[in-house]
């Protein structure tokens, strides 16, 4: 199955239809995703689970260093909150990034991503923290006045009830007016999984 510490075991045929049923992927696409998962989950520790360092390595080509956004992505993928990403969690989360996934799901995922403290609101301090993180990541500097001006403008646009925080309804209205904010919530690669990972056919257990 896709159980931790048994990465080389053959997948349970029953897991594939279950995951296909729970997500937007076909059964063969789930198998193709397993090829990607095997690669990512064995890049540092070959134990059939993706550790944060492995995600960091895949995204930044270096396993070291801290990145606020990697932390958030990791937390959202890690449904069971056991500090690793298991295969079913990987498939569930990537399903949201499929070009055909419902827009509502992408909006909700992005909201949870930016709601750093998970209070149900995106707060001004959280936005400031994320802007500072992106500036550090890209070696850019901005004066504090400019930083505050950017955040003021964003809240003037997004925070309709002016309570200093963005709730999920305000977020939805805001991203529908600014759809480019959801660009990174769609991965065109997910439409071509069986072409990208053709080796799934050597291990296939199902026929779509």
């Amino acid at each position: 199955c896709f159980e931790p510490r048994q990465p080389r075991l053959k997948k349970c045929a029953g897991d594939i239809p279950r995951l296909a049923n729970e997500t937007i992927f076909t059964m063969n696409e789930v198998e193709a995703l397993y090829e990607l998962f095997k690669k990512l989950s064995s890049s540092i520790i070959d134990d059939g689970m993706i550790h944060k360092e492995e995600l960091q390595l895949a995204l930044f080509q270096t396993p070291s260093g801290e990145n606020l956004f990697v932390d958030r992505i990791f937390d959202l993928f890690d449904e069971k909150k056991n500090d690793v990403i298991e295969f079913d969690e990987f498939v569930h989360a990537l399903s949201v990034f499929h070009p055909n996934a419902p827009m509502e799901d992408k909006i909700d995922f992005a909201f949870r991503l930016y709601d750093l403290r998970q209070t149900g609101f995106i707060e001004r301090e959280e936005v400031k923290q994320m802007v500072i993180a992106i500036l550090m990541e890209s070696d850019m500097t901005l004066s504090d006045d400019l930083l505050e001006a950017i955040i003021d403008k964003t809240f003037a646009d997004a925070d309709a009830d002016k309570d200093g925080r963005i709730n999920s309804e305000e977020w939805k209205d805001f991203v529908l007016r600014n759809p480019n904010l959801l660009k990174n919530m769609t991965l065109p690669y997910l439409k071509d999984l069986t072409t990208l990972f053709p080796s799934f056919v050597f291990n296939t257990k199902v026929e779509d």
């Binding site: 990512l40 895949a58 990145n67 930016y114 990541e137 400019l146 001006a149 403008k153 990174n184």
Partner: peptide, 26 residues
């Protein structure tokens, strides 16, 4: 383009940490 006209989330969404397409690239 003045940075003040930028939206904070536009800036944030450019993070490499949020660019999951790199999972599919070598």
């Amino acid at each position: 383009v003045s940075p003040v006209t930028m939206n904070a989330f536009e800036l944030i969404s450019t993070s490499q940490g949020l660019n999951l397409s790199s999972l599919f690239e070598k």
